[in-house]
Design a protein around this nucleic acid. Structure first.
Length: 444
RNA sequence: GGCCCUAUCGUCUAACGGUUAGGACACAUCCUUCUCAAGGAUGGAAUCAGAGUUCGAUUCUCUGUAGGGUCACCA
């Protein structure tokens, strides 16, 4: 069997959103699974709507996701070839020039090129949908080109796929009804019919076809929100496809091995945000501490990362961040909610909130003094979560913990909700922690 | 409207014609606990409807219903 060649052929008329890049993912995965090649073709024959910035966005998006192409081509580069084919089709009687009034109402008469429809039944075997058959009569003599130099979609697609030796056309279901037309053209120009696989559509939350204005986010937005590309890739691949095993978490390489067009779903599906967050959290867990720290640093709110104590605090923050972050972008919302500043600046304290439930101030004060005392025995360079926890737990003994731990946590963070006091101690370090506890004791 | 396609928990999905219809996300409860987060345990939650074939239909057939796609001098 000859080598598999698939292609992804977006038109640069908008940023790449899930509806499109999921198709790209499947095309890529199938090609790589089969040991074949993946062609990227920018379909820019519509000159008015095609924009360079969108082409850039598409390229950027695919690169971010790690979907590298083996061949790159712009459809507009092939117009010479399209013209040649068009001329031959006219000469062979498969197409004809039709003088028609322009649709813009200007009354201008234009020479457009129409396909001579043989009006027959066309059938093809779709890898996902099975046998599909349609009568092409009601398609009429559809238009192949605006003029000899301006080919339209169907003609360009067929010629480009033919020339690139595309063996498998994997595209969205919205192209199913275009297929008979394109097969007709293939037959007219003596091109082989590739294997088709029409993917179910990715739907919006409202179950409608996704579009830019219906909340379909460009991949680059997910990137900018601090999602991991491997999470987006994994999550996208799992919609409309399943590996046939309970495995849900996949790396790109694992997907390549497992991917199988036969397990692709027929019905459209919705990509839920919650599940996306879960995928992202899971992929973040797989990051090494080193990589995690690098990324966290990159995303850390700038006004905090510029602090002189940042270099000291930041590394000690990592374990806590690993627990709490679902995306790196959440660093910003954490900061907005005040969940980060108190690690850098001493918080303002409200003595009322400091006391645990009905605890009296004097009781809280005594407990804090005792904590301060025991903590004094822990060396500065051994001020870890486990060490401080051990000493404080020993101090508390069998007594209830709340009257000790709540005032301590509040003294360190100035917040009702925060990480546990031992984590806080380990992040702030001995000097800062001690100073904050003393300051609070002075208030009581 | 014509043509084409689809239909399992709220969502993503699994189930040679025989299962208490399974898993994941989300949700709820409980545990852990000074709070929040994380973690652990448990739970509620689905075969669109109606016929037919069959000893037996989620699964096969038909009809209906619902949803989607497409009917450009866009792709």
């Amino acid at each position: 069997m000859s080598k598999v060649i698939t292609r992804f052929a977006p038109s640069p008329t908008g940023k790449l959103h899930i509806g499109s890049y999921r198709t790209a993912i499947f095309s890529y995965l199938y090609a790589k699974h089969m040991g074949g090649q993946f062609v990227l073709r920018i379909e820019d024959t519509d000159r008015e709507r095609s924009k360079k910035e969108y082409e850039d966005n598409i390229l950027e998006s695919l690169e971010w996701l790690g979907l590298s192409h083996d061949t790159f081509v712009r459809q507009s580069e092939n117009v010479g070839r399209h013209k040649e084919v068009l001329e031959k089709m006219i000469a062979d009687g498969h197409a004809y020039i039709s003088k028609e009034e322009a649709k813009d109402g200007s009354g201008v008469i234009k020479e457009i090129i129409r396909f001579k429809n043989p009006n027959i039944d066309v059938a093809f075997d779709d890898l996902i949908r099975g046998h599909v058959s349609m009568n092409t009569t009601d398609l009429g003599d559809f238009v192949l080109a605006k003029n000899i130099n301006e080919p339209l979609f169907h003609l360009a697609v067929v010629v480009d796929d033919f020339d690139a030796g595309i063996t498998h056309v994997i595209r969205g279901e919205d192209h199913t009804s275009n297929t008979p037309r394109q097969i007709l053209i293939q037959r007219a120009i003596g091109a082989p019919t590739p294997v088709y696989a029409h993917l179910p559509l990715v739907l919006g939350e409202d179950k409608q076809k996704l579009s830019k204005r219906k909340g379909a986010l460009p991949v680059t937005d997910y990137r900018d929100m601090g999602y991991l590309p491997e999470a987006i890739l994994n999550a996208s691949a799992m919609i409309g496809w399943n590996p046939g095993t309970p495995q849900e978490l996949f790396t790109k390489d694992e997907l390549t091995v497992a991917f199988d067009l036969a397990k692709v779903q027929k019905g459209g599906a919705v990509l839920g945000v919650e599940k996306l967050l879960w995928y992202n959290r899971e992929h973040m867990k797989k990051l090494s501490d080193k990589v995690f720290a690098e990324k966290a640093k990159e995303w850390f709110p700038e006004d905090l990362s510029m602090r002189e104590n940042f270099g000291e605090i930041f590394p000690r923050l990592i374990p806590m961040l690993r627990d709490r972050l679902a995306t790196f972008g959440e660093l910003k919302s954490m900061h907005d909610d005040g969940e980060l500043v108190y690690l850098f600046d001493a918080p303002s304290i409200n003595p009322e909130q400091l006391c645990f439930k009905t605890q009296s101030r004097s009781d809280a004060k005594v407990n804090l003094e005792n904590i301060l005392l025991t903590l004094g025995a822990v060396p500065e360079d051994a001020f870890t979560k486990s060490n401080t926890e051990e000493t404080i737990v020993a101090l508390i003994g069998d007594a209830s913990r709340g009257p000790f731990l709540h005032p301590l946590r509040y003294a360190l963070s100035g917040r009702d909700r925060s990480p546990d006091p031992f984590t806080l101690l380990s992040i702030l370090g001995k000097t800062t922690s001690t100073a904050r506890i003393q300051a609070v004791i002075a208030l009581l």
